[in-house]
């Protein structure tokens, strides 16, 4: 559905040329649900804008839905849906009107555009908002209207740029249930960008981690987490002496790595932390290092990013 080859985009700034996207190679098959994950400024949106023909590449190329983005941008546009970072409806336009206009822009006849608009308004729970100007809609309603506009022509491929930014958790969940249902019904390929770790983790079947305009990791959320050496086990002790003893005892267990002591806290990495825990507790008891608390955490995508770049994704996000 998407093939990019050395896709590159430079921007001229006062301090010289900035490479926003550097030689990106990406293949997305039909029916995939892919999240492009990375901090702000990583090049996610620039990539999406090139794939949706809103921005010409500086070099390299891409075919999207079987059409070349440079040679046949109109062909690409006809085959894709795009939900941008901003709100797509004009502030003084009625929700229903914008939806019908959007359908007409994709070549639908008036009656068909109206029929699909009504169906989408109902499916996306926008019936009550249909006759309101977009400026009077709530944030969640606006975003659902954006999604409806991205879907009215039933594209094979839907791009979503930061679809849930600014939404409360309830609206986010609601939005995703709609997108996922539509995908299940029509087999739509979905490519989204996000800097929400939990969103990429929960929704995407494949996560492409982008940093400084390059792909630095690509796989299912579980595969990516596998790159981090094990679960994080945090032990709390009563005294610093006990912590040192605990660290020593824990370090002797097979498989433990990255043992760190911080005051009365000990942190270490171990594969299958849940399975190791009983043995670990016995070893610590035997070493005379009583614990006041213990916690096992599965790796998060942030751990993946941290392992790959030495930086936390949370610092990059606002």
């Amino acid at each position: 559905m998407i093939h990019t080859r050395a896709l590159t985009r430079d921007f001229g700034t006062k301090s010289g040329t900035v490479q926003a996207v550097r030689g990106l190679d990406l293949d997305v098959g039909a029916g995939e649900l892919v999240a492009l994950l990375g901090p702000n400024g990583a090049g996610k949106s620039t990539t999406l804008r090139m794939l949706t023909t809103l921005l010409p590449p500086t070099s390299g190329g891409a075919t999207v839905a079987g059409r070349d983005v440079v040679a046949d941008p109109a062909g690409v546009r006809r085959r894709i849906g795009f939900v941008g970072q901003g709100h797509g409806a004009g502030f003084d336009q009625l929700a229903r009107d914008e939806l019908v206009t959007q359908g007409r822009c994709y070549g639908l006849g008036r009656a068909e555009a109206r029929r699909r608009a009504e169906a989408l308004l109902t499916e996306l729970e926008l019936d009550g908002a249909a006759d309101r100007e977009s400026v009077r809609l709530s944030g969640g309603q606006r975003r659902r209207l954006d999604i409806a506009m991205g879907l009215i022509h039933r594209p094979d491929l839907l791009f979503l740029d930061e679809p849930s930014t600014g939404l409360d958790p309830h609206s986010r969940a609601n939005l995703w249930s709609h997108v996922l249902r539509m995908r299940a019904e029509h087999g739509t390929t979905v490519v989204l960008t996000t800097h929400y770790l939990d969103e990429a983790d929960a929704v995407a079947e494949r996560v492409v981690v982008i940093d400084h305009g390059r792909v630095i990791a690509d796989g299912t959320p579980d595969e990516l987490k596998g790159k981090v050496s094990g679960d994080l086990v945090s032990l709390t002790t009563a005294t610093a002496d006990a912590a040192r003893a605990a660290a020593e005892a824990a370090g002797r267990l097979p498989g433990t790595t990255a043992v760190e002591t911080d005051g009365t806290e000990v942190r270490l990495r171990v594969p299958r932390g849940d399975a190791v825990l009983p043995e670990l507790l016995r070893a610590l008891d035997a070493a005379g290092a009583p614990l006041t608390g213990v916690r096992v955490q599965r790796p998060t995508l942030d751990d993946v990013f941290l392992t790959l770049t030495g930086r936390s994704l949370r610092e990059g996000a606002e």
């Binding site: 795009f82 901003g86 709100h87 409806a89 004009g90 822009c105």
Partner: peptide
């Protein structure tokens, strides 16, 4: 200008219109 800023203009540009 408001449509350029809000994203409405971009949305129309992304259509085959």
């Amino acid at each position: 200008l408001p449509e350029v800023r809000s994203g409405a203009h971009e949305r129309l540009l992304a259509t085959p219109v």
